[in-house]
């Protein structure tokens, strides 16, 4: 594309020069002529820039694979996998963060709390390790989905932040994400005679995250407000 642009611009300039040459031959040049020329040039230049520089996405066709993730049942599947101790391999692609927090010697209580009131409620799965590894292993599974008017958007939904300080694990849930979605419509004279697009007019947004902690068995857990802990 970077090769095409200079040729297009040169072609455009030659065309502008040719039109000016022809116009000068037949018409006396007036300010309005030049204004029209400039306006038409901007219109033509914008065609080239939009063709090269913009991506216009059409309604998604591989909706089935996308929709599967959006089904509420999917969230249940990962919960079941945790509870029943199933293989977590299918969910590895949703791992957004992995961290290890070292425990200070002699620590017997760890507090888990949620900072901030905003965001989704926190669900924390805790697996007790029989051997004392001297650390807490944390894994965050996260996924977000957004579908607007039949278009699947790439919704960037950050995972929650984990902060370890003074034997306290503070989890801040991601804030509401501001997403700007840009749509372009067909012009009404075209729309009037084209087959009407069967467009979904719905809006669906869906996000989940699960925090999975592996903690030595002798450590007691103190739950903060708005934190739902499930022991595996």
């Amino acid at each position: 594309m970077s090769f095409t642009l200079p040729f297009l611009l040169i072609g455009f300039l030659v065309a502008v020069w040719a039109v000016i040459f022809i116009i000068k031959k037949y018409f006396p040049a007036k300010a309005t002529h030049w204004l029209v020329m400039i306006y038409v040039s901007i219109l033509l230049l914008s065609v080239a820039i939009v063709m090269i520089g913009m991506e216009i996405k059409q309604p998604f066709k591989d909706g089935d694979t996308v929709r599967k993730v959006s089904e509420p049942g999917f969230q249940e599947e990962i919960y079941q996998a945790f509870k029943e101790g199933k293989d977590l391999e299918p969910f590895e692609k949703y791992v957004a963060m992995e961290k290890v927090f070292p425990l200070e010697p002699g620590v017997s209580v760890v507090k888990i709390e949620k900072t901030g009131k905003e965001g989704l409620p926190l669900t924390v799965f805790i697996k007790r390790n029989k051997e004392n590894s001297g650390q807490i292993a944390a894994k965050v599974y996260s996924h977000a989905f957004q579908e607007v008017f039949g278009y699947q958007m790439t919704a960037a939904f950050p995972p929650p932040k984990l902060k370890w300080s003074k034997n306290q694990l503070s989890i801040s849930a991601p804030k509401v994400q501001e997403v700007n979605l840009y749509f372009v419509n067909k012009e009404f004279p075209v729309h009037q005679f084209r087959e009407k697009e069967k467009r979904d007019t719905g809006y669906t947004s869906w996000a989940w995250f699960v925090i999975y902690l592996q903690i030595p068995e002798h450590i007691q857990i103190e739950e903060g407000d708005n934190v739902f802990v499930e022991y595996l």
Partner: peptide, 20 residues
């Protein structure tokens, strides 16, 4: 502008219909 607990989505529409 649609807001839920996850996203605040602003939907922009560009149309040439006013020009036409």
């Amino acid at each position: 502008a649609v807001r839920d607990e996850i996203f605040l989505s602003k939907v922009y529409y560009y149309s040439v219909d006013p020009v036409i």
